[in-house]
Design a protein around this nucleic acid. Structure first.
Length: 382
DNA sequence: TACCCGTGGAG
DNA sequence: TCTCCAAGGGT
């Protein structure tokens, strides 16, 4: 591990910020600038040795992957772990290798391919973004403003694509970077407020050389060293610059407000099977699990919290219960299994019949996949 | 601003 | 088992 000491800072500053005028008007400003310059040098040296190998990433110092791969991976990685993303990234790039092929894809197929990854608005925005880019000639905007205007790209993702795919100097601030910087600066202000100052702080540290590697190095550091619990400060290349470490309790940053507890909801999903087929529907295009295939249900998501589901409207029995936890509420979903034989009325229901053998790959979100597996385990009905 | 929006792994 | 939370964005 390469260590940077104060005497090296001036040289490091020239390496990382070749075109910037060296701040020397006051000792305090110069000290701050030297620290901000030493940080990327130490971090990049660490990254050269410890970078994670990821399918959507170029090794340290090498040219980046194509912008399509960078964009696709960044969308998938929003609030999602690298382990969860890897198989989806492989499947998407194999099936839709360019932004033009994705733009031309059938929407239902893209939604089905996204099933299980969560936050399905990302998939809807993914299609809209691909079509916007393809309509403009197939090239992603290079600069921050153009990227930020695309559907599904907020401040973080626009900056990440600009830095990683195009080598633009941009403030890439995700939860990892928030954690690293609030610890480096020992920011005791709670995050919702402190968040406003972080982009400027991160931009001040971001080097003109290798800004994409710098961003990915910050995230790798947050994932492997500057972790939420029990950070490995003794192995950290930035410990010498870290006010949180100097205080002896970097773990207390970032300061976050308490979270409201999750309410509980209850509802039914309907398992209507005849022979070896079951009825599936497509949910409305917006809202929870919007646009995804699903089992019919009794509208549990629209009911106010605590309300009980309406009585079952016919010959049903309860085939089991699925416990599922969403971001902001937990759900007890009872599986109501149709036990009647009024197949004329059943045939009039909206939806489509799916053979059991195709339900696993029908593109059901996890909640409904669990419910469908429970249904198929009931045995065939007739 | 505050809330809505999935899922699975780590501890 | 249960809590926390991840390469956030939209409204």
């Amino acid at each position: 591990m390469r260590q940077i000491w104060p005497g090296q800072a001036e040289q490091v500053y020239r390496v990382c910020f070749p075109s910037r005028v060296r701040p020397c008007h006051s000792r305090r400003v110069r000290a701050s600038g030297e620290r901000d310059a030493a940080i990327p040098a130490a971090l990049l040296a660490w990254y050269d040795l410890h970078a994670r190998k990821l399918p959507w990433r170029a090794p340290p110092g090498l040219p980046p992957p194509d912008p399509y791969s960078v964009w696709l991976s960044e969308i998938m990685l929003q609030q999602t772990t690298t382990a969860a993303v890897a198989p989806y990234f492989a499947a998407f790039t194999a099936r839709w290798p360019t932004v033009e092929t994705l733009a031309a894809a059938d929407e239902a197929e893209v939604m089905a391919a996204w099933a299980g990854l969560g936050y399905y608005a990302r998939a809807r925005n993914l299609i809209a973004c691909a079509r916007a880019v393809a309509a403009g000639g197939g090239h992603f905007p290079r600069m921050l403003e153009g990227l930020r205007a695309l559907p599904g790209l907020g401040a973080y993702t626009a900056a990440a694509v600009a830095a990683i795919a195009f080598g633009e100097r941009a403030a890439v601030v995700d939860a990892n970077v928030e954690r690293v910087v609030t610890r480096l600066d020992a920011i005791a202000v709670p995050l919702p407020l402190a968040r406003k100052t972080l982009p400027a702080r991160v931009l001040a540290m971001t080097p003109e050389v290798r800004p994409g590697d710098f961003a990915q190095a910050m995230m790798d550091l947050g994932a492997a060293v500057c972790t939420v619990r029990r950070p490995r400060c003794l192995a950290c290349p930035l410990a010498a610059f870290c006010a949180g470490f100097r205080e002896g309790d970097s773990e207390r940053y970032p300061v976050k407000p308490p979270k409201p507890d999750k309410p509980a909801r209850t509802g039914h999903a309907y398992w209507i099977a005849r022979g070896d087929q079951a009825l599936l529907v497509t949910r409305p295009g917006t809202g929870l699990l919007g646009g995804m295939r699903a089992l019919p249900d009794d509208g549990w998501n629209a009911r106010t919290d605590g309300a009980l589901p309406p009585p079952l409207p016919g010959p049903w029995r309860i085939g089991g219960t699925i416990q599922h936890s969403f971001t902001h509420f937990s759900l007890s979903l009872h599986l109501a299994v149709y036990s009647g034989s009024d197949w004329a009325s059943v045939a009039a229901l909206p939806g489509a019949w799916w053979p059991f053998g195709q339900i696993e790959s029908a593109g059901l979100p996890t909640l409904f996949l669990k419910a469908a597996r429970l249904g198929m385990a009931q045995g065939e009905t007739e």
